[in-house]
Design a protein around this nucleic acid. Structure first.
Length: 874
RNA sequence: GGAAGUUUAGCUCAGCCGGGAGAGCACUUGCCUUACAAGCAAGGGGUCAUAGGUUCGAACCCUAUAACUUCCACCA
């Protein structure tokens, strides 16, 4: 038989074990009518992405759940995949082209896509390898990609269905545009931050009068597109101006003063410039008052040719020039600092421009309603359930979803335009216009928002819209595991998409976790450079340690801090398991009996009872997705009960020379170890698999073993409780020895008044060994112990230890006297300082406090020493 | 403006249905006890944010307050 190394070294086996699992097809989930399916769809990481701590936690949680369910006998499918990440990827490739001195425009769409695919094939798989390092047991044979043929077909089907139902429309609306990425964004893709800026007050002259209206703006450049000034209808200051005409400075355009409730008289000057083409609120005002919309910006954030002398300038340069010009013309009233919320592109963080633009939208109201109902009716449950409120909050206030992006890397919108004006939405590329018969059809240039395809993930990956056996068997999925930050982007959209297309909720449970923060509680981010690379942690401590550290002490939905200390603690625990296993194995020298063949001793029943309780608690916790609690219970059992107590308790039997007793002890040790390893496997899969391979007997892989089951016959509740008296007795003796400074190695004679002589006798060898005792005698009362004794009441009875056994009285007295002398000296020294008024009043407070603390400590020591001396003198 | 969360040991955090206040790290003391010093044993350390309320009983339920965090909306 192979030997286990003396120390746990994950590098020895993690890669090898993963290969073994792969070769033996352990992750494959089959459509198997004899089993109940359990399905988890991996949130597809971006192909541009690198595994970060957030992924590591997310994937670890999924892996724990899927391994647990697999062992429980489900046909457990964890379907992995990657996301084409339209914007992020295109951004990356455009950047690369720029470095090469070319651009996407000069390459053209076809060549650009060819390069993008080449990039994807080359680098897009990196994250897959990283997931394997982490131990993810996904069914790689089903690896999906949001831009692959299957998913693309689903996207087309979904788009066409919505289009046919009138839930997708094309229209000119205010959207968020990123001037750097040069594309429209959805509301969710815009991040708002408080930015310092200015409030510029401009005076707009009233036509045919000397009067002026002062407006305030944070974005002066948009004034070029002003088509009105609005005031509140109840505002007395401006009542007389309503209906009058203003001359827009710099442009000379005549614009009306309109009255609109939208204006807050108390804010700014109470008069608002209205730029319908560049502000969502102004857009609404514009609609109400039938104002023209004047778009003054190009797609790249420069001013367009409607801007006269400012045409071609960057928006910020134009802002500067405009302010200068206004100042020159004497219309700048004042400038004041002003912080306000500014939208930024979540990808490149450039300031987003709200702009009127013709885009494709999904009508949300009809889709949101059933998605809300499904959660209200508990068809899908959030864990923890408070996240349902966040979900409702989003869906109840949702606006139409802008789904078109001015990008090439993605699903091209399946709509074609004919010169005759016809618009054709089609599942297949059309060749001829159904109205005029023309062959001259042009496909829409835009791509769909990445999330449009992600929204279909739970079923597109299973072959929908085809009724594939996989779809029929594995869908709806069971649990979605993701962070709370992704609820609006993804969870919500999968919900309404699943319900709309498949008439079923896409998953029954949504397990929400928090963010992994850095040691100081800050978000890990590229700009801060405070991210910890999971791969480096794996390299140093192994994947199992990382995994365990990411789920212990973590409550569902709460953020957690990543600390190396925690990883170390996990590593230490695993090392403990490693060595406990090694201990058991090094004692195996015969055929190990099964539990049924063993006459169980009280200690055996106690550990088996604890094992059963642990099986029950861990199973229940995992079923509730309380991974942190499950891990804590398991660690506590394995370390405290099994290693610290049972293994020690078993040593007399192992070393005692009685072959039969040894055999029994081994049987129990192996039984408990086997079950402990199985319970631990979902959390720390590599090391448990490795240890499993060393266990005696013919066995397969632990990954394919049955999960331990609670067995009432083995619960031994009452006997276990009784046995705890022995543990209590041992702890009592140990504490008594420490109390009187008796070295643990010194064997003492125990005298016990008890009515549980049998229990104590059976466990005598263990007690002697663990308590550090030479003998136990049963007595009727304390006098029988003879001479001076220390005594203590414990669960099994009244315990007496002769003092002479604990300490060499004369020696100890001498030691204590010397110690007392020293302590008294220290007290005198402290008093010397503290009684000195100058010291107390003039020395730094900390020094004085420290001195007082020292004195208190020595006083306390003095009291204890005196008490002990008294005991010995008596 | 709306919503959610957090507040428990020195630090980081668990704590299920209302009944014993816990873990890891740190700290103190003693141990290389033939699985493990990545270890063993024994300890110290808490006004469970504050104030009320419900209850036989509250870290947990209710009300209010405070501090911090996050999300959404937003006033040009």
């Amino acid at each position: 038989m192979k030997e286990m190394q003396t120390t746990y070294d994950p590098k020895d086996f993690e890669d090898r074990i993963y290969e073994k699992w792969t070769e033996e097809n352990c992750f494959r989930a089959e459509v198997d009518p004899s089993k109940i399916p359990f399905t988890v769809m991996m949130p597809p990481p971006n192909i541009t992405g690198k595994l970060h701590m957030g992924h590591a936690m997310d994937e670890t949680m999924q892996d724990i759940v899927i391994r647990f369910k697999r062992m429980q006998g489900y046909s457990a499918l964890w379907l992995p995949g990657t996301d084409h990440a339209s914007l992020a990827t295109e951004h990356k490739i455009v950047e690369k082209l720029r470095e090469e001195g070319t651009s996407k425009e000069s390459l053209g769409r076809e060549e650009f896509l060819r390069r993008a695919w080449a990039w994807k094939d080359r680098y897009g798989g990196a994250i897959v390898g990283q997931l394997k390092k982490l131990g993810c047991s996904c069914d790689w044979s089903r690896l999906a990609f949001t831009l692959d043929e299957r998913c693309s077909k689903a996207v087309r089907e979904a788009f066409c269905r919505l289009y046919e139902k009138g839930l997708i429309y094309r229209g000119s609306r205010i959207i968020n545009r990123c001037p750097d990425c040069q594309t429209a964004l959805s509301d969710e893709e815009v991040e708002h931050t408080e930015d310092a800026g200015f409030f510029w007050h401009f005076a707009y002259p009233v036509e045919g009068s000397d009067e002026k209206i002062v407006i305030a703006t944070t974005r002066p450049e948009t004034m070029l597109g002003d088509t009105a000034v609005a005031v509140n209808p109840s505002d007395e200051r401006y009542k007389k101006f309503v209906g009058k005409t203003l001359i827009l400075p710099l442009m000379g355009r005549k614009i009306p003063v309109v009255a609109d409730e939208y204006v807050d008289p108390a804010f700014g000057t109470g008069a608002v410039k209205i730029t319908p083409a560049h502000d969502p609120n102004d857009f609404e005002v514009g609609l109400r008052h039938d104002l023209p919309m004047i778009n003054v910006m190009n797609d790249d954030g420069t001013m367009n040719d409607l801007c006269g002398e400012f045409a071609g300038l960057d928006r910020y340069e134009a802002r500067k020039r405009i302010v200068e010009k206004i100042k020159e013309s004497g219309l700048l009233v004042k400038v004041e600092p002003h912080t306000h919320n500014v939208g930024h592109c979540h990808r490149c963080h450039a300031t987003v421009e709200p702009i009127v633009s013709k885009q494709w939208f999904v009508k949300m109201a009809p889709l949101a309603k059933p998605a809300i109902d499904a959660v209200v009716k508990n068809k899908t449950k959030f864990v923890p359930d408070r996240f349902a409120k966040i979900y409702f909050n989003w869906l109840e206030n949702i606006r139409d979803w802008c789904i078109s992006r001015q990008l090439w890397w993605g699903h091209r919108i399946p709509v074609w335009y004919c010169k005759c004006g016809e618009t054709i939405c089609s599942r297949e590329d059309p060749v001829v216009c159904p109205v005029c018969g023309s062959h001259d059809l042009k496909q829409d240039d835009d791509c769909l928002d990445t999330w449009f395809s992600s929204a279909l993930w739970p079923f597109s990956t299973l072959g929908w819209p085809e009724k594939t056996p996989e779809f029929n068997y594995f869908y709806p999925t069971d649990v979605l595991v993701t962070g709370y930050d992704i609820i609006p982007f993804w969870v919500m959209r999968m919900m309404f998409s699943g319900i709309e297309y498949t008439e079923k909720v896409p998953f029954h449970d949504v397990l929400i976790h928090g963010l992994v923060r850095d040691e100081q509680g800050r978000k890990m981010s590229k700009s801060l450079g405070n991210g910890v690379d999971p791969l480096e942690v794996i390299e140093k401590y192994g994947a199992d340690s990382l995994r365990l550290s990411l789920v212990t002490g973590v409550a569902p939905g709460n953020d957690t801090r990543f600390t190396e200390t925690k990883v170390e603690a996990s590593r230490n625990f695993i090392n403990k398991i490693w060595n406990a296993s090694r201990f058991v194995l090094m004692n195996v020298d015969c055929e190990v009996p099964s539990l049924a063949q063993i006459r169980l001793q009280p200690a055996d029943r106690w550990i088996i009872s604890r094992l059963m309780a642990t099986i029950r608690e861990v199973t229940l916790s995992l079923q509730k997705y309380d991974l942190g609690i499950a891990a804590d219970k398991l660690i506590d059992f394995a370390w405290s009960d099994f290693c610290d107590w049972y293994i020690e308790l078993s040593k007399p039997a192992l070393y005692g020379g009685d072959a039969e007793k040894k055999k029994s002890a081994l049987g129990v040790l192996v039984f408990v170890l086997e079950n402990t390893l199985k319970l631990l496997h979902p959390f720390i899969p590599f090391v448990t698999e490795e240890i499993w391979s060393f266990l005696p007997g013919e066995r397969g892989n632990i990954i394919s073993e049955d999960y331990p089951r609670y067995n009432t016959k083995l619960s031994y509740k009452k006997e276990a409780k009784t046995f705890e008296g022995i543990i209590d007795l041992i702890k009592t003796v140990r504490a008594m020895k420490v109390d009187v400074n008796c070295p643990p190695s010194r064997k003492v004679h125990l005298y016990l008044v008890t009515d549980q002589k049998r229990l104590v006798s059976v466990n005598k060898q263990s007690i002697l060994r663990l308590a550090g005792a030479s003998e136990i005698d049963f007595i009727e009362n304390g006098d029988a112990a003879g001479g001076k004794t220390l005594s203590h009441v414990c669960e099994v009875g009244h315990l007496f230890i002769p003092l002479g056994e604990l300490v060499d009285i004369e020696k100890e007295k001498a030691r204590l006297s010397k110690e007392l002398e020293r302590v008294v000296g220290e007290i005198a020294r402290a008093d010397g300082k503290l009684l000195n008024k100058n010291f107390v009043s003039k020395a730094p407070k900390k020094l004085v406090d420290d001195e007082r603390a020292k004195k208190d400590k020595y006083l306390d020591m003095k009291e204890k020493i005196e008490r002990q001396l008294h005991l010995l003198d008596d």
